[in-house]
């Protein structure tokens, strides 16, 4: 009786969850349905596809490296610090998540544009990062870093503090504690955060369009190519969207599966 009830409750919960799966899955599935193999082939041969795919992979890899290299020490400090300032900083670095991406692009222009706040001291007057591949990476870092920092901060917080105290008492330097104890323990959380952050930068559109512009091979990433194709050829836009979804799905599976498993606590011992 209780077993039956248990199963019934589980069934209800799964059904409720299934509603969300259907809602999220149906639009993605509809990208694939009704687009014949022939149309997909024609779409794939659209001249926008390959330069955009190459540029997207290049820039998102670069932004991921920047986010992880700068975000890990930040997350470590935020997780260890207890002051009010640290909480304020932690909240501030989450803000890019709520800023609409296109507004983020305008903000980047006002900060790093030709007439931006940084002109004259960060870079020579009359120059700018705008319209360069570097601008694409900057836009991606801006919108995606919060996802990594948030995940990494909570991963570091979950570490048992006594382990760190023991390590310190045996004479390990703070850097050594971070590299040898904290990083391996927090690795699953860091990898998950990196995957989220990477996925966000792969889909980044608004900030890139505003700050980096839209030029094939230089600043036209996959989402920009999709939007450009949408103006003329729905087939190409759908084929490109499918490429984006499949590439993202494959890479997320890879990151979560392969890297995630190898860094699970059980797998290391």
């Amino acid at each position: 009786m209780s077993g039956l009830r248990l199963r019934a409750e589980r069934g209800v919960l799964s059904a409720v969850g299934g509603v969300l799966v259907a809602f999220l899955g149906l639009p993605l599935l509809s990208l694939f349905l009704g687009l014949g193999a022939e149309d997909f082939g024609i779409g794939l041969r659209h001249p926008l596809v390959w330069p955009a795919l190459r540029l997207s992979l290049l820039t998102t890899s670069a932004s991921l490296v920047v986010v992880v290299l700068l975000g890990t020490p930040l997350a470590w400090s935020l997780a260890r610090a207890k002051g009010r300032l640290a909480r304020a900083v932690e909240t501030a670095v989450q803000l890019p998540i709520v800023v609409p991406p296109a507004v983020a692009g305008v903000a980047l222009l006002l900060a790093f544009g030709r007439r931006g706040l940084g002109a004259g001291w960060l870079y020579p007057e009359g120059t700018s990062f705008s319209f360069t591949t570097a601008a694409v990476v900057m836009a991606e870092v801006f919108v995606s870093a919060p996802f990594f920092v948030q995940a990494a901060t909570s991963a570091f917080r979950r570490i048992d503090g006594s382990l760190l105290v023991v390590a310190r008492s045996f004479g390990a330097s703070p850097l050594r504690v971070l590299l040898r104890i904290a990083l391996p323990l927090a690795a699953p959380g860091l990898v998950a955060g990196a995957a989220m952050s990477w996925a966000r930068s792969l889909g980044e559109f608004g900030a890139t369009l505003m700050f980096a512009g839209n030029l094939e091979g230089r600043t036209q990433t996959l989402p920009l190519a999709i939007y450009t194709a949408l103006e003329s050829d729905m087939r190409a836009a759908r084929a490109l969207s499918i490429v984006l979804v499949v590439v993202a799905f494959a890479l997320l599976l890879f990151v979560r599966g392969v890297l995630g498993r190898s860094t699970e606590p059980g797998a290391r011992s």
Partner: peptide
Amino acid sequence: VSRELNVRQVLAK
């Protein structure tokens, strides 16, 4: 340096 998707973005830049 850029091919914009709407005319207001050309003007903005």
